[in-house]
Simulated scan of single mutants.
Amino acid sequence: MVSIILKKGKEKAVLQRHPWIFSGALQNVKGKPENGELVTVYAYDDEFLAYGYYNNESRVAIRVLSWDQEILPNEAWYRKRLQAAFNNRKHLINADNNTCRLVFSESDYLPGLIADKYADYLAVQILTSGMESLKPVILDELQRLTGAKGIFDKSDIGARAHDGLAATEGLVWGTLPPDFVEVKENGIKYNINIVEGQKSGFYCDQRFNRDLLANYAKGKRMLDCFSYSGGFSLNAMAKGAAEVVSVDSSALAIETLKKNIILNKFEGIKHEAIQSDVNKQLRIFKEAGEEFDIVVLDPPKYAPSRSALDRAARAYKDLNRLGMHVLKEGGLLATFSCSGAVDMETFKQIIAWAALDAGKEVQIIHQFTQPEDHPVRISFPEGEYLKGLLCRVY
């Protein structure tokens, strides 16, 4: 096995069990490992540190798998990790919930692997060369654990390019999912399009947050921005919302949302679905004097990296300022960020700036986070990406 020596002082993060070793920390590579190959990592004084897989095209040169010299990651090791991830989530799958995240990358000790369960189908994202080399083992074990009818590869995002990998998408096991797969979350049915939908097809990281916010919606008028397939909209309808307005720029999202309303027999509830840019639509609402009791802002990732933080902060501030302008006095703003580069304290500061610009007073009455199938590994805080605030705005 190829040995890699770290520069003096660069062993600290590894000893603290952080799973990333950056290329700048490498002193010497004893050999010519292929991308995705397992290597042994040593400190500058030749002390064993860890095993991990290597990539010379990525800023993260080594993704650590094991810190125990006696435990060499092999096929059995990967299968055991997958089994642990599945067993830790089995209790989440029941009559009211048949969708969840089964594997969450570094947080489940499997860097670069994401797997989501949607009823009888799985969607996977394999984002690193190390996981790519283990793809047959991963797919076999996931199918064995879940009995999935089909596994669809959604590894079509830019993250693979960081490891020198081309985007991939398509069926990799079993039968192709139908145009719409019916899943249940919080007892609500969703027809989702795994093949053509965004990312893996459905965002199950808001499961608890959707249910919690819906408890405030009875008899209220709610605006759901970036509504996608209707998670917040449908939960509010189920809990007795008087009216819901859903806005998304995607025609497929709006079409899917309308199908989901029919699927749940919510046609009798007043609802309007608008295909539009959210910021533009919020300005239209403001100019028209429209007001809502609840406004939900759940935008896509504005800060994919720390280098984009300043630009993202401005985008979040403008969005929330506009959202505050269409709230009734004392209304509720549920605002989210799924950017890992934006921590909760930074997000609170952004909301404070937005309130100042909008001339509003804000009380934080709840802090949202990601559910247990998106665990945060204590030595990998980067896994804590979803944060949100429930604010009362005056």
Score class of each variant (00 low, 15 high):
residue 291 E to P: 11
residue 295 V to R: 08
residue 249 S to F: 09
residue 325 H to M: 12
residue 291 E to W: 03
residue 275 Q to T: 12
residue 252 L to C: 05
residue 261 I to Q: 02
residue 281 Q to S: 02
residue 241 A to W: 00
residue 291 E to L: 15
residue 242 A to M: 06
residue 244 V to W: 06
residue 244 V to D: 00
residue 296 V to K: 14
residue 271 H to E: 15
residue 284 I to Y: 01
residue 312 A to M: 15
residue 296 V to R: 14
residue 310 D to A: 13
residue 259 K to P: 00
residue 267 E to I: 07
residue 301 K to T: 07
residue 311 R to Y: 15
residue 277 D to W: 04
residue 257 L to N: 12
residue 247 V to P: 02
residue 313 A to G: 15
residue 259 K to V: 14
residue 297 L to P: 06
residue 306 R to G: 14
residue 243 E to G: 10
residue 320 N to K: 05
residue 248 D to Q: 03
residue 269 I to P: 04
residue 243 E to T: 11
residue 306 R to D: 08
residue 271 H to Y: 09
residue 284 I to S: 13
residue 274 I to D: 00
residue 251 A to S: 05
residue 245 V to D: 00
residue 249 S to W: 09
residue 303 A to G: 07
residue 256 T to F: 03
residue 281 Q to F: 02
residue 250 S to H: 05
residue 248 D to A: 11
residue 263 L to D: 05
residue 244 V to L: 12
residue 284 I to A: 06
residue 295 V to I: 07
residue 276 S to R: 12
residue 250 S to I: 07
residue 305 S to K: 14
residue 253 A to N: 10
residue 323 G to S: 03
residue 255 E to C: 13
residue 299 P to V: 03
residue 310 D to R: 14
residue 320 N to F: 08
residue 256 T to G: 15
residue 319 L to E: 00
residue 267 E to D: 04
residue 254 I to W: 05
residue 270 K to I: 08
residue 271 H to M: 11
residue 241 A to P: 01
residue 294 I to R: 10
residue 308 A to K: 07
residue 293 D to Q: 11
residue 312 A to V: 15
residue 285 F to E: 05
residue 251 A to V: 11
residue 297 L to W: 00
residue 303 A to L: 07
residue 303 A to P: 07
residue 294 I to G: 05
residue 242 A to G: 10
residue 295 V to A: 01
